[in-house]
Design a protein around this nucleic acid. Structure first.
Lengths: 339, 339
DNA sequence: TCTAGTTATGACAGCGCTGTCAACAACAGA
DNA sequence: TCTGTTGTTGACAGCGCTGTCATAACTAGA
């Protein structure tokens, strides 16, 4: 049978409470006692019953990752980072995707978040985009008094967050294209609900404007982060008369960039010789398509890790208000040097 | 403050126990009482405290998904299916990847599984390949008396499982290639630790042998499911003298198939005109590369769903011993008709 | 009407742990 | 020696729920 705290206490000849103190690293236990108890706990392979502990402390040692973002790659990296951080602190991660509610349906999102949290009293919540900018959900969390960390939110707010500087990343990537001699650079926008969309757009515009280039309207095409939307955008831009056609297309994420490459292939345009393409995210896809995609590596794992770390932080450690993590420009084969 | 069972009981003028009976759908409650209690519970937005309930019943209402398979796509579909099944039954899913232990390191796997389950007394465990064939881990689970469902295991065993018929799928895909007039079909093997690897291999061989074709040794190349291994395999096969070169390559998964297409592209071989390629899994990748990949769609979501469903099954519902789910051959653009 | 059998309900203990608070030991300084 | 202070320990209640078992309220049949 599984050992309880009583077993350890008896064996060590102390009270349950003393054992409890040792296990929770509380002060005021004689060093000798502490060691003896520890040794016996190990020997008995004792580990506390989370339910009992939870009942007594009204903590659950559970963190929830709540999302409605369908990108498995993004989620799985966040998740992995979060789990690793949880594990270090004796926490566990429960994963709670919201069932599809037409994007932007705030009421439905709130209802679902409520249901989940009513049932499972987690100690903290990680919110990924676009949920991290859903004020209604944030209000519910505040009301239920549940700590939360937002991943890549649009704006600060009171809660802690982790993110990266999308604007600068996009700026630098555009700059790279300019450095290679490209001037006619089209841009495929992401999903309007995502904070990153406008930031990436802004970075691109800033680089172009600093280079003194006026971007024609038809060089900026709406997408929604999906492969299909990228393909549609590519068709729109690549069917322009040859003289007006861009020499490079910067897509707001890798899926759309892959679509651009695919469409270019179908149209007989060689990438990167005739058309350069770059993306954003550095999904596994980026290395797997041909030519391999020049893109921005987001610190997704690290965002998940830091988010969870903040949530499981013991109160004596210092809080992080907001963290901007580093990105990296991954130079691969999909961009040619025009010079 | 959050309502407790006592609040509901007082309000309804009954004992806690009666409320408890209603909430757990136990018999022997007058219909009138049952309805009144239900109404009041709703009104108070009451939901039971999982920790307390867990302490009293020694159940946790938690299911763990344990894996050491690094394929995010596979896991995310399993996960999604499992979560949906859990939610229907008031359960939650906690995700527990094993930290990298050189493949096949059974001791380390056992140690980690033990640690996880000592801390978190889950009610059931879902095991994905290759963990689903790790006898040492299965023994631990049996010893701890934790129910488990294995996903796509190699062989039956005593535990319930969900899976698909990899051999037949591979057979049918090979058959398709043969139907298109291909004779020189090479095959890229998967990771040796995975049960699917030998099954897919077997299906391929069966189709070839039934077609009366002798497969030359150098047409069967070892891979490990990774893109890189697929690329290496492709290089090996495609650098054969032209007369000995295959007209089609069947890779054991999509990543390796994508690698084959990529290498072919680099070598100036047109897919599908000069070389046909097909994969296995139908990852998102398959639709996103160009040409779109002909592949086998695995019922991954459904496997996760059924696995969890079996674990959260109330004891009065009938048990499923083992389930073989349907696959689907996805015909796309990477295979050409030679006739 | 009474009895036996059945259904409905509640009192209470206890799941394994931690918070509170009181008790006790050790030791310093007066 | 006594008092005060600090450090160490344990007794006990109680977190919110369910299992057990006793009891109360019915029902049907004689």
């Amino acid at each position: 049978m599984k050992a309880t705290i009583t077993d350890v206490a008896k064996r060590a000849g102390v009270s349950m409470k003393t054992v409890s103190r040792v296990l929770n690293n509380e002060p005021n236990v004689a060093e000798k006692t502490r060691e003896r108890v520890k040794a016996i706990a190990d020997e008995l392979r004792y580990s506390p019953n989370l339910a009992a502990r939870g009942l007594a402390t009204s903590k659950s040692y559970l963190i929830a990752l709540i999302y409605d973002n369908p990108s498995p790659n993004y989620i799985s990296h966040i998740q992995r980072g979060a789990i690793d951080a949880c594990r270090d602190a004796g926490y566990h991660l429960v994963v709670e995707p919201l069932s599809f509610s037409g994007a932007g349906d705030h009421d439905e999102a709130v209802r679902q978040v409520r249901t989940v949290l009513d049932r499972l009293p987690v100690d903290g919540v990680i919110l990924t985009p676009p949920l991290s900018d859903n004020d209604a959900v944030l209000d519910v969390l505040a009301e239920l008094n549940i700590k939360c960390v937002r991943v890549a939110p649009k704006n600060g707010g009171k809660q802690p967050f982790v993110g990266m500087d999308d604007e600068t990343a996009s700026y630098q990537m555009t700059q790279h294209l300019l450095d290679q001699g490209h001037q006619k650079i089209a841009f495929v926008l992401g999903h309007i609900d995502h904070a990153a969309t406008s930031l990436r757009h802004a970075g691109y515009l800033r680089a172009m404007s600093e280079a003194g280039i006026t971007v024609p309207d038809n060089f900026i095409v709406q997408g929604d982060f999906s492969f299909e939307s990228g393909a549609a955008a590519a068709r729109k831009v690549l069917t322009l008369p040859e003289s007006e056609r861009p020499t490079a297309i910067f897509a707001s994420n890798d899926d759309m960039a892959a679509a651009v490459i695919s469409v270019a292939g179908q149209m007989g345009l060689n990438v990167p010789d005739t058309l350069s393409v770059c993306g954003f995210d550095d999904t596994p896809l980026a290395r797997v398509i041909w030519p391999a995609l020049t893109t921005v590596r987001q610190p997704i794992y690290k965002m998940g890790h830091q988010a969870a770390k903040e949530l499981v932080r013991r109160s004596d450690e210092k809080a992080e208000k907001g963290q901007i993590l580093d990105f990296e420009i991954m130079l691969r084969d999909s961009v040619s040097d025009l010079k």
